[in-house]
Amino acid sequence: MDAVVWTAVGSLTVWLWLLLGQGFFWRTDLRLPPRREPADWPSVCVVVPARDEAGVLPASLPTLLAQDYPGRAEVFLVDDGSSDGTGELARELARAHGGLPLTVDSPGEPPAGWTGKLWAVRHGIALARTREPVYLLLTDADIAHAPDSLRTLVAAAHTGGFDLVSQMARLRVESVWERLVVPAFVYFFAQLYPFRWIAVRGGRTAAAAGGCVLLRADAAERARIPDAVRHAVIDDVALARAVKRAGGHIWLGLAERVDSVRPYPRLRDLWRMVARSAYAQLRHNPLLLLGTVLGLALVYLVPPLALVAGTVVGSTGAAAAGGLAWLLMTVTYLPMLRYYRQPRWLAPLLPVTAFLYLLMTVDSAVQHYRGRGAAWKGRTYARPGTVLDER
């Protein structure tokens, strides 16, 4: 049992460090920073890449068109080769609901070296630049915005001097699997990219949430967005890194009234969402994959296993270290469950969810080596990059 005891102590040590030394990632009180409304509201163009989004567009697009924004704003929806009538549906919704002006256009199939979404974003930004906007709002077709969303984003960017302000949209949690997996997804993301570190000027940590990114147009030009990240599968993180590398000041936090309306009712839906990009996050590096698997096992699986093993064989050290580590894990997960309005009893089940994520990550690597890469809506990217090295 000596090895079990020391492994459990190692896991407990990691959890003590995560509790205090990882930017307080587990706290969920980071919302839009203090803001004051500008005297003259800057112009904004909203860019929405959309591929086969007819199922969610009626719940999302009208919320963009209905934005209560005092300045000049318009929406550009870029139909990325949809086969379900997404573009025509967008025009019908605009005719029915009115609101901000809407332009619907399509760039055609992406050339080699581009992901479909970023090719659509490039086309949308090119259309938007003809209007010479001060800000660009990049938002996904499944994101619903409260009427004052654009107004508060611009006010926060203006007050804080931010080049990029991003909100992590509240994801849907209605099915059993969504309740088990989705809050943990955001928890793990915040653990990798502590939100408090992202806003530090000159810091190395950079990330954004692709569903809601307000970006200064001149900062996008300096960072060569989206060309600099054109084959990034994890495009939001890549975009934030490019902006920060170009000297931009960025901010990311949790949203209150920005919501994803996309359902993930079955485990396989969530599995596909995670697995399509997990190995890209690890730069397709087998050593990083091995380290991630071992790290997940040490941090999330060892505590309950050590508690059970120590209790069965009477090892007080293993049971105590494992139990304390599991307790810290549970306590740090509670704020995220509260944010998602989920019951507290889900917190001790985090090791189960972490094991699922471990399997999803391994499956992502397996699919990559089978030549399937990151597959999404009929397109497969065999070797997606995270960020291009070229300047």
Rank of each mutant, 00 (worst) to 15 (best):
V299L: 13
N285L: 01
D259F: 09
L267I: 13
D269Y: 08
Y279E: 02
D269R: 10
G247T: 05
Y264M: 13
R257H: 15
Q281L: 03
G247I: 01
I250G: 08
Y279G: 02
L267P: 10
L298E: 09
H249R: 15
A246M: 00
L282G: 02
R241F: 05
R262H: 13
N285Q: 06
L252R: 12
L301F: 11
L294R: 10
A242L: 09
W251M: 04
P265F: 06
L290N: 06
Q281V: 04
L290E: 06
T292V: 01
R241L: 08
R268N: 10
A297V: 14
L270S: 10
L252M: 15
V243H: 10
G295D: 10
R266Q: 12
Y279L: 05
R245D: 15
S260T: 08
H249T: 14
L288V: 00
E256D: 15
P286I: 03
L290Y: 07
L301M: 14
G253K: 05
V261M: 07
A280P: 00
G291V: 08
R283A: 07
S260W: 01
S277P: 00
V293C: 11
P263E: 03
P263S: 09
L298W: 08
E256I: 03
L298D: 08
L252C: 10
A280C: 05
W251R: 09
R268G: 01
A246I: 02
Y300P: 02
G291L: 13
L296D: 07
G248Y: 02
E256P: 02
V299K: 08
H249S: 15
Y300M: 05
Y300K: 03
L301T: 10
G247V: 04
G248P: 07
V299A: 13
G253T: 07
W251H: 15
Q281N: 02
V274K: 13
V299D: 05
R262M: 13
W251A: 07
L282P: 00
A280T: 09
L287G: 00
V243Y: 04
R276G: 09
A278P: 03
P265Y: 06
H284Y: 11
S260G: 14
I250R: 08
G247Q: 03
L290M: 10
R257S: 13
R266P: 04
L296Q: 09
R245V: 02
R276M: 15
S277L: 06
L270D: 09
L267M: 14
R241I: 04
A297L: 10
G253H: 03
A255D: 06
V293W: 04
V243A: 10
L282E: 01
L267G: 02
L296G: 11
D269G: 07
